[in-house]
């Protein structure tokens, strides 16, 4: 089933990860040889079709950002492969990689620290245009910046302003405009709205959705807000301690949560309306997430799982609970 899980990642995929693994050295001996490893990500496999959004959820430290960074070549995976429209892009030379740097961009959490305070908004957005020589002359550059700003709901006059003159939501719009300057096809949104006020988050989510429709963008959408992930994603992966524990289309996973961790995670999200509150059955998990340094053998969720038994000392295999809905748990094998 593991093979099937890896292979059965949607034939008409656009971007595919196969067994992606990232181990960081945690401690080393006198000769600098690592003696223990942080399991940032282990055997992560998924595929995103073009123009769709793959949501990534899971608790702090479970490896969400690590997965995003491996896709963008910020981290060099210690195992596994990445395919972009069928081409293996895992080990490209810098020259071969260049077109993919253009096509794959990142929008991340902190709209405050990710903008250089000394640059004007227009120049920030134009940075990638200059790097990749995407404009023939100053007029074309200005025109591009203006188009990007309008597209992201900013007034072109604001091009001359400095970051501190913008609100948090506007700064995040600048980050998005900058990420779009190279006409990317794939964008990793890593907690892209988490730092924003509630009333501003919805604006940015709408913007991301509109841009996706307009430009046929494919997103990897990382967030700890399950309601937002549910709203924006077509497919979802649930991660725990470096591994995917459940994967499927957003609706099947939402309706038919299989893995005990997925169930607990969704049930822990505070209910919003009175109706939701009434139907809610909270599954409280004991204890904390164990350390990712040399994680426990067997099922990694074992120490907190209400259903854990003897079998769970062995690593569970993948099971397909329904079409295209996979879960890694002994309850289903």
């Amino acid at each position: 089933m593991t093979e099937q899980f890896r292979a059965n990642t949607n034939e008409n995929y656009f971007l595919k990860a196969e067994g992606l693994t990232m181990h960081f050295p945690a401690a080393s001996d006198a000769f600098g040889r690592p003696t223990s490893w942080i399991h940032g990500a282990d055997d992560v496999s998924f595929a995103v079709p073009k123009g769709k959004t793959l949501g990534v959820v899971g608790e702090s430290g479970c490896g969400k950002s690590t997965v995003g960074k491996m896709l963008l070549n910020i981290y060099r995976p210690t195992g596994g492969r990445i395919f972009y429209e069928g081409r293996d892009i895992t080990d490209l030379s810098p020259k071969e990689r260049r077109p993919y740097v253009k096509k794959m961009q990142l929008v991340w959490q902190d709209p405050y620290s990710s903008l250089d305070p000394r640059l004007r908004a227009g120049d920030i957005i134009a940075e990638p245009i200059d790097n990749f020589r995407l404009a023939k002359n100053r007029a074309e550059r200005a025109e591009k910046v203006e188009r990007l700003m309008k597209m992201c709901g900013l007034y072109p006059e604001m091009a001359l302003h400095y970051p501190h003159q913008f609100s948090g939501g506007q700064r995040q719009r600048i980050c998005i405009a900058r990420a779009l300057a190279t006409d990317p096809e794939f964008v990793v949104c890593d907690e892209a709205v988490s730092a924003l006020d509630v009333s501003i988050q919805a604006q940015i989510i709408n913007l991301l959705k509109d841009l996706q429709d307009e430009l046929r963008l494919t997103y990897l959408f990382i967030s700890h807000d399950l309601n937002i992930v549910h709203f924006i994603s077509d497919e979802i992966i649930v991660m725990y301690l470096g591994q995917i524990v459940e994967r499927g289309t957003m609706e099947t996973v939402y309706r038919n949560r299989a893995h005990p961790y997925t169930r607990a995670l969704f049930s822990a999200t505070p209910a919003f309306t009175a109706a939701e509150k009434k139907n809610k059955q909270r599954i409280l998990l004991e204890g904390d997430v164990p350390s990712p340094v040399d994680p426990p053998k067997g099922c990694r969720f074992r120490s907190r799982c209400p259903y854990a038994d003897k079998r769970c000392g062995e690593e569970p295999q993948w099971s397909e609970v329904e079409e295209n809905h996979f879960v890694k748990c002994h309850l289903f094998s």
């Binding site: 609100s167 948090g168 006020d197 919805a202 604006q203 709408n206 309601n227 939701e276």
Partner: peptide, 20 residues
């Protein structure tokens, strides 16, 4: 209204325009 509840069906979220 701007909060996406799980049973919300719309394509876009309702927003409060402008910023604080």
């Amino acid at each position: 209204d701007s909060h996406p509840s799980p049973d919300y069906e719309g394509e876009r979220l309702k927003v409060i325009p402008g910023s604080v």
